[in-house]
């Protein structure tokens, strides 16, 4: 389809283990993100959602190898792409909103420099033009006193402001796809809502597709149109948010909803994920690995 921005098809990745194939990290993952859409990738830690993000960006750890499948982004095959070609796309057509706004900014460089460098690199703009663009971006993310903020260092800003700066930088070169990796996990809940609101606003204005990686079902339910649930490196359930939130099909998805505490429900409404559900998925993963080891 011509309006898909990202198509991951049958992606397999394993831990390197000498000659043999190590334990699987991503097992036959497929997912699609359409133009202008926000797609939620939900899973627990270690389920593989961060690995998918890294695989798309090409920054997987050295110990992990993509053994099969394809990642097609805007018509380009990202798996096995040469470094010099990849560097032309990163920051320009695809960008990242990171999880921790404190560590993602270089403490020794001013905010302005960290916003304008990517524009000057990919768009070839002069210092003055990039500076003006940075000012406009800061206004878009509702930062007052933009001129002063550009001159500041990261430690002089609050967590919420830092995240706004990072969001602004992600949109700087008008990318087609943004990967938002747990963008609000490190923030207070009231700040989280403001940032999510901002993200939606920016998305609507720029028409960018966003892959929202999170462990929070609530965030996905409120923000995304479609979602993928991942566990043990496998996509467990996938589809429209409106369907899955109201009628989750897979036992694991149902269990996740039941295990999420709610402030509007009494204490006994919480039930932990049943052991059998997790075991079943782990069995499935083990079988998968054995089959692949048999193949190679």
């Amino acid at each position: 389809m011509s309006n898909t921005v990202l198509t991951i098809a049958n992606l397999h990745a394993e831990l390197r283990a000498g000659r043999k194939t190590g334990p699987g990290i991503l097992r036959n993952v497929s997912l699609t993100v359409h133009q202008g859409e926000m797609h939620g990738l939900v899973g627990e830690s270690g389920a593989g959602k961060s690995m998918i993000a890294r695989a798309i960006l090409g920054i997987l750890p050295r110990s992990i190898l993509i053994s099969d499948g394809s990642i097609d982004c805007l018509g380009r095959q990202m798996v096995g792409l040469a470094d010099s070609d990849r560097r032309k796309i990163l920051g320009r057509d695809i960008s990242l909103i990171p999880q921790d706004p404190l560590t993602a900014l270089n403490p020794a460089r001013r905010i302005g420099a960290q916003m304008t460098d990517v524009m000057r690199l990919h768009l070839g703009w002069s210092r003055a033009r990039a500076h003006d663009a940075a000012l406009a971006l800061l206004n878009e993310v509702h930062i007052r006193d933009a001129e002063a903020v550009l001159r500041r260092y990261p430690h002089e800003l609050s967590g919420g402001m830092r995240q706004r700066v990072l969001i602004a930088t992600a949109f700087a070169c008008e990318p087609k796809l943004i990967i938002a990796d747990e963008p609000t996990t490190a923030l207070d809940v009231t700040v989280q809502k403001q940032i999510l609101r901002l993200l939606r606003e920016m998305q609507n204005r720029h028409g960018t597709a966003i892959l929202l990686v999170t462990h929070d079902l609530g965030v996905v339910a409120k923000m995304c149109r479609s979602l993928s649930v991942i566990h043990s490196g496998m996509i467990v359930e996938q589809g429209e948010v409106s369907d899955i939130v109201t009628r989750p099909e897979h036992a694991f998805t149902r269990a996740l909803f039941a295990a999420t505490p709610r402030y509007d429900r009494p204490a006994d409404a919480l039930s932990p994920v049943p052991g059998e559900v997790v075991r079943e998925l782990e069995e499935k993963a083990a079988t998968f690995d054995r089959a692949r080891a048999g193949l190679s």
């Binding site: 560097r87 990163l90 990242l96 990171p98 921790d100 900014l105 270089n106 690199l121």
Partner: peptide
């Protein structure tokens, strides 16, 4: 190995 270096890679710098 700091996060801001990863960010720089993701921005496309060599």
């Amino acid at each position: 190995v700091e996060d801001y270096v990863t960010m720089a890679r993701v921005k496309g710098f060599g």
